[in-house]
């Protein structure tokens, strides 16, 4: 790795790159809050609504960072041929926070998800599913950090995001199978809501993977 920081010819781009890491940090905290909100709901914690609010706040913060960085790129940062890719990358990262918010909405006070959903939300399969979702975001952060080091370092990490996305998919299948084949009688509305919750939450990993695909395009264009 060769450090050209002393040249200071890429101050604007460095600020944006640092901003992307800041966005990822916010997104990671948002997904962590989402994880905490699922646990709180499963426990029947009275403060679960407060934790859900943290997810909403995190998504709002991510939106603000996304908007700020997008404007800077549109103003002329980065080589013309990759500006669109950088904007796509920001969009996909922001979509992760959006997915966390959409999924957390199922756990908010005005949700129709009732206490009978708690056992599913607190199940080991759900824990594994959410763990895979979080890992996909962590792998994406690691991939973006590697972009600053060079092509081989980035390429070595590009498949990790996809691996976690596939792992999340596998856990999602287990959860859906358990939901539809359960002998326990569950309100059909709860079944539908849990199914939708799982699908929406899975978008966290899907968007992380989409972001890694954009990074692959950047690498193909000689970046990283």
């Amino acid at each position: 790795m060769v450090d050209l920081r002393f040249l200071s010819i890429n101050r604007r781009e460095r600020a944006i790159f640092d901003g992307v890491l800041r966005l990822l940090d916010t997104v990671t905290r948002t997904v962590d809050s989402f994880d905490a909100s699922v646990s709180a709901f499963a426990r029947g914690d009275a403060k679960s609504a407060e934790v859900v609010e943290k997810v909403f706040d995190g998504e709002t913060e991510a939106d603000a960072i996304h908007r700020e960085l997008g404007t800077k790129i549109a103003e002329g940062a980065f080589f013309g041929g990759v500006r669109e890719d950088m904007l796509n990358l920001l969009e996909k990262i922001d979509d992760i926070a959006d997915s966390a918010k959409d999924a957390a909405r199922f756990l908010s006070q005005d949700s129709r998800l009732t206490a009978e959903a708690r056992s599913t939300l607190g199940s080991a399969a759900m824990r594994s599913f959410i763990s895979a979702l979080k890992s996909s975001v962590a792998a994406l952060t690691s991939l973006v950090q590697a972009l600053e080091q060079g092509k081989s370092e980035a390429l070595a990490k590009v498949t990790a995001v996809e691996d976690f996305e596939e792992e999340a998919d596998a856990h999602k299948d287990i959860l859906l199978k358990a939901l539809f084949s359960s002998n326990e009688s569950m309100d059909p509305v709860t079944v539908i809501q849990l199914r939708d919750f799982i699908f929406v939450a899975d978008n966290i990993a899907d968007n992380a993977e989409d972001a890694s695909d954009v990074i692959l395009v950047l690498i193909a264009k000689g970046y990283g």
Binding site: M1, V2, L4, L147, G150, Y223, G224
Partner: peptide
């Protein structure tokens, strides 16, 4: 150039590309 650029990170490559233009 691609071999040379692969040793650098995204910001350095971007600077090189803009200077190269």
């Amino acid at each position: 150039t691609t071999s040379f650029a692969s040793r650098f990170g995204i910001l350095a490559v971007d600077s090189m590309n803009r200077a190269g233009a």
